[in-house]
Design a protein around this nucleic acid. Structure first.
Lengths: 290, 290
DNA sequence: AGGGTTTACGTCGTACGTAAGTATT
DNA sequence: AATACTTACGTACGACGTAAACCCT
């Protein structure tokens, strides 16, 4: 049996070409390295070096051994990295969400239910989210449509309804309800991280222009101090308070009212049972709010 | 960096299922193994075991680590074996010969010229001997035909001429010379290790029968005390003395007179120069005898 | 109670560094 | 003289074994 550190030292020598240099790189004394190489030869039962009294060089077997050693060290490192990575993955729950609003509460729920786990969330408007869930990139997903029941297990977790907010002076400010296409061509203030809503807006209002803002608070201020139309949802208003100085008009498009589902692979249903139980126990009572 | 012996211990535990069992197998104490496994976890930064106070079992990461460790141990062993094998090969000269008679003298010549080397010889009647030489199975070959000059370097080393020996009462005993086909259908005493001659005999005398004998001395006695035709060569007679009480008749087939060549791959010509020089210096003078 | 694991402690081996020796440039 | 490797020697860290405590079946 040959220990890894001997191979590491051999490779260091191969890289430096001299014992003293390699010893320095390895932070050991040069005689120690000299003895290590002797021991390596002894354990292999093979001479690896040409000894010219004052110069040590690898012979053919030495070169061969170095190639093998390099490979083995790479393998060893790969092993360590992959075990660590697998361990890290094992203790993090990765969540993909199509909508931003649910994320904070969902994370706090998961943290409570899976103590010690790292919760990693990703917001995406990508309609392939179910595919990613299937591929293992996420263990849980928040979707705005009920996914394929053959593959996934899912429960509804919340409803959300889209509203447009207009300054009172806006020509459409008196409407009881609006379709998105009625608003096409205008310029909107829009939160930049809106997940799947993005796709809906751009599809129904291809000529509209969007002023994107990353910071929710800043966006609120802009909305308060400008005449641009903007969006909000019942969910948002319930948590952040009503919008002031604006008319809040329901969006009538069918897709503007969504039910969010929490989904996982069927095989993982048992693992995430506490999550689903939580939503089943609260469903109806608070109209599916987290 | 994780040392090999830790991985070996991990695998031993995986095989035994219990620390005490594995410790016994490894010839170390059980507490030592316990500490080793703790250190392994520490160095990986990952827990590998479920600890139920009185029972230690691998968890998922442990199983994964075991798989990687098994692989790495196999690789390490392969490395050691292959380095040793390469070293052994490096210090042995492997010779393939189509004829038995030259082998002893050739071995003694090589031993003299390449001190410290192991000489390994193999007698074969296989006509693919040049291919084997090309593939590296042999470094030198004794052939009965000059091989392809594109690939091989070769020099003639000896001549050999086939004779048939017949008891004086044999109907053909008075011939000055015979073709093999004249002898077809008879039963011969034959040395079993005759390399390429075998092929010639069976081709030219498809109906002949051969009584094979492995031991040269025993064969000689049988020849002396029976009436079966047998073969000899000038080379053999020169070294073992003439055959008594028998008529020694030249075989006239063209293939019954051969010149042996010593060959190596062109690239190896320099390495074996002393061998070729020896034959070039003695050629002619002693009619190419070793 | 017995088998299995971990913790504690004392010992021995071994791998290291320092120092000296030898050879090469 | 300087550089590079080996040999010699003393030391110190670490891995081991023994002993004991702990825990579960």
């Amino acid at each position: 049996m040959i220990e890894i550190h001997l191979l590491e030292q051999l490779v260091a020598f191969a890289d430096c070409g001299t014992l003293s240099g390699a010893a320095e790189k390895l932070h050991i004394s040069q005689p120690a390295l000299s003895r290590s190489m002797q021991r390596l030869e002894e354990e292999l039962g093979v001479t690896l070096f040409e000894r010219q009294r004052s110069r040590l060089t690898l012979n053919d077997m030495g070169e061969l051994a170095v190639r093998y050693a390099r490979n083995l060290l790479l393998q060893e490192n790969a092993m360590i990295q992959q075990i660590r990575e697998a361990d890290r993955k094992k203790r993090t729950i990765s969540v993909g969400s199509c909508a931003p609003v649910l994320i904070p509460d969902f994370v706090s729920l998961l943290s409570r239910l899976f103590e010690g786990m790292t919760i990693s969330t990703e917001l995406t408007g990508d309609p392939r989210l179910p595919d990613y869930l299937k591929e293992g990139r996420y263990q849980l997903a928040i979707l705005h449509k009920k996914p394929d029941e053959e593959t996934f297990y899912s429960v509804p977790v919340a409803d959300e309804k889209l509203f447009v907010t207009l300054p009172p002076v806006h020509p459409l400010a008196d409407a009881d309800g609006l379709y998105l296409k009625d608003l096409d061509g205008q310029t909107f203030l829009l939160y930049s991280q809106i997940g799947f809503w993005d796709e809906l807006c751009r599809r129904e209002m291809p000529s509209a222009r969007f002023l994107l803002q990353q910071d929710m608070d800043v966006l609120g201020e802009l909305v308060a101090n400008s005449a641009f139309p903007a969006f909000t949802t019942d969910y948002v208003m319930e948590r952040s308070g009503p919008v002031t100085d604006r008319m809040v008009i329901p969006v009538l498009d069918e897709e503007a009212s969504v039910t969010y589902y929490c989904a996982c692979l069927k095989e993982e249903k048992a693992r995430f049972r506490p999550v689903f139980e939580y939503f089943q126990s609260t469903s109806g009572s608070r109209s599916r709010r987290l």
